[in-house]
Amino acid sequence: MQRINEHRRTQLLNLMTERGWDSILLYGNAWRKDPFRSLVNINFSGDHALARLSRSGDVTVTFSDPWDAETASAALQADFAKAFAGGAAAVAGLEFMEERFVAACGTLPVSATTEVEELRRVKTAEEIGYIRQACDLADRGYQRFVEVAEPGMREFELVAEVEAFLKENGAEDNFMLIASGGIEVVGMKPPTDRKLQKGDSITTELTPQVNGYYAQICRTLVLGEPSPDQLKAFEIFSEAQCAAQDLIKPGVTAADAARAQNDVFRKYGYGEYTGAKYTRVRGHCLGLYPDETPHILEDVDYVLKKDMVVIAHPNTYLPLSGYMVFGDVLLITETGNTRLNKTEKKLFTK
């Protein structure tokens, strides 16, 4: 079997010893491939995949799709419930499993999802390498976004161009949201058939995936000359993002990183726009899932560690500008962090 994350296998075996588990399953489905790929990094295209790790360290892999099984030289189980026969002590991804799979385990396993997610948060050098590649692609993808966006183009056509570019350049997948317009825009969503207009503020987050690992970039582009209010808004977003970037290092909490951003908005009288009515999170971790926890929120006391990868993005609605986004990926180092995106930190105009 190829593409076993040896570091993860060792971590999981230690976890099994600590918990007294004789086996652990890592389940992935078409949406949540990440628990499976955290041990066996195969980009399966069928509905389900399962890895079983025994106390001896052996890994057996089963797919529901014959093409996945053939490509990976692994077992095929078209009736995927049968892959769970014999059960296991613990399952990472138990929450996403269809109940018929859980029933097929016999005895209800415990969930190992939280423990495995904690193991995944601190990245290996190899994982950081993939995220660097994904960041580079996010930067180039945003460059493409700016190059092709023009008045008269429909949102979904712009997304098609960026998607094509990312795939041409090796992205496995990409999570992307977009919005265009003025102060009436309160959030991003999938592309519509709205035509871009001069004066529009176009927000996007690109999240390309390379070898399983996601990176992200958030930027705002104004078609034409930005208004004084758009420029003023961007200065607030920029200051907020910088506040997080200046602060984040091992020992700082997710709450600290969120508060640093929100305090900038408060300083300028826009504190109400840091709440759930106008925004979601002030950032999150990245890895095999594009929205890994911990989220950067003022009520999350998780202590950040070296080699975690987070994006700090103070994205929110402001009455000055409508919804605006701005964020970069940060690799936490021994004493601070390194910004992995290279795209200029500015309000883009065209």
Binding site: S45, W67, F156, E157, V159, A160, E161, E163, A164, F165, L166, K167, E168, N169, G170
Partner: peptide, 23 residues
């Protein structure tokens, strides 16, 4: 296959595809 993926993504998504899986 990467380059061809890009070409197909552009064509399908411009035609209104919501999602695409290419093998």
């Amino acid at each position: 296959d990467y380059q061809f993926s890009g070409l197909l993504e552009r064509a399908f998504r411009r035609a209104g595809a919501e999602d695409l899986v290419l093998l």
